[in-house]
Design a protein around this nucleic acid. Sequence first.
DNA 1: CGGACAAGCTGA
DNA 2: CAGCTTGTCCGG
Length: 598
Amino acid sequence: MTDPLPGFEQPAAPPRVDSVFSGRVVRVQPDITGVQRQFDYVVPAAWEDDGRAAKIAVGSLVRVDFHGRRTAGWITDVDVTPDPSLELRALAKWSSVGPPQELIALGDWAAWRWAGRLPHFLRAASPQRMVEEVAPRVEPPIADANPAMDAVFSPGVTHVRTTPNDSGLAVAIEAAVRGSALILVPTLHQRTEFSRALRNQGFDVAGYPEQWARSASGVLTVGTRLGAWAPVPEPASIVVIDEHDRAYKEERTPAWNARDVAIERARRGGVPCVLTSPSPSLEGLETADRRLSPERSVERESWPVVDVVDLRTADRPGLLTDAIVSLVRDSTTVACILNRKGRSRMLACGNCDALATCDACGVAVHQPDDTTLECVSCGTTRPVVCSACGATKFKLIRPGIGRVAEDLRALAKRDVIEVTAETDAADMSGEGLFIGTEALLRRLPNADAVVFLDFDQELAVPRSRAAEDAFSMLALAARRVGPRSQGGRVVIQTRKPDDIVVQAALHGDPKRVAESQRDVRRVFGQPPYGAWAVVSGAGSATFIERLRAVDESASLRLAQLGDRWRIAAESHTELLEIINAVDRPAERLRIDVDPIDL
DNA sequence: CGGACAAGCTGA
DNA sequence: CAGCTTGTCCGG
């Protein structure tokens, strides 16, 4: 250390007298994305006297002096033996109770499994606001478990195929009866529904992440994707409702999947994990130790009447066949689904309705990001400002839907409600004739009939999961309209009436989809019979180059897809052992393990 | 991540 | 070679 220059005052250095420290040393993971290392700090002696030291535990949120600044972090280990050559600093502040030990270990695993960083997962497992202390664990009142459900809650992973009109609530209630459980659902709306239903059954319910502290004291917890990281201590079981749902997959990096986190968490805790779905994912079926399905006749009866309209022999051109028109006239609430994937989308000014066009060539423009409009034809860009009135808000118009809605209005002689992202939920609660994309199915509470105007749109998607996704959409439609005994009706317009997905819905038999997909994917080594990752971004070329160097025996298969790369391996272990060993380039890089859109 | 410091670039 | 940018390293 250099002496201060004469005449200059030395800045106040932190006291380094031994008696100031308690001698206890803890390990801290800083909450900084770029820092994967952990660092040791000592507990200040003063904390022993005022009770703060007693709060030091694995998972605690603290603040520490780190390389000239102060940062938040998590205690990942206590009573560490530090490297004697280091001069340790003291913890600066105890902030909050944090995730329990087992979630920190699970975070380590998730960081490996999705090639991500630990702080990302620790944030998911931490309270949104500081928590002073957690109430002692509450033991839920023990009710009588239903012996008929013993098979569902036996050790390991159980896949329960539900009927389309069974939300999975019965499984969730039974889980609650058997001890403090963790229930995951795909959407916030389902979280509200399940919480309400469980409360009506007399259970105390914590919603994650808002009620972190209650969850931490062992209250039955219901959450969406993030709920996989709820701090319920040693849950008696973990239930994943509608396990096939894409909402369980995080879209941002690291692109983790809550279903898979739940499965691993249950495995580590040695508790049952129950997956439910009316349209199972192959991943869910494959990881399950046992698969339960309803009796064939029960499942069949729970499906609505499915009408298949062959568009090749339709009575009139276009999508509004006679079958549709008469159905729409006779039924009260109908949802018409028309996905216009891959078609050009146009923008119109939210203020004056002028179509946004290119200043150079007059062609319609699209909006690639928040700040630019780009010409599809010549690539000219301009700011998001209307040329006619100067407004800065634009709305998306899907020419397909607008046109069809207009025609439908004329043919059906009734009002048609076009549902977009901006449509108010209140406008969708009553009766009516609705038209919109797949999102309409998620938002409409129920309907007398659902019509897929052009189902080939779904079947023709070039993705390995296309069939499963298309079928899950039909299962969702079936849930909205109810079973055939209640007059539920789903109409599928297609040029491929013999497609396995259409046939499976027609016969109310999801097994057909899974079986056909299983064979295809096995042959080609596609997930879940192999592991995939997609690498994209500016740094991907460098990354792939380095990966080739690490993968000496060339056990990974690489395929370039435009500016992205697909990495395929026999297993996740093989895939991640290599991916995690590659030095990440400085440029932006996105690694998507288990991509859902490939 | 962000500060420290080294190496590289530019213009007088 | 000062003054600036860019790159690399590293933290308790």
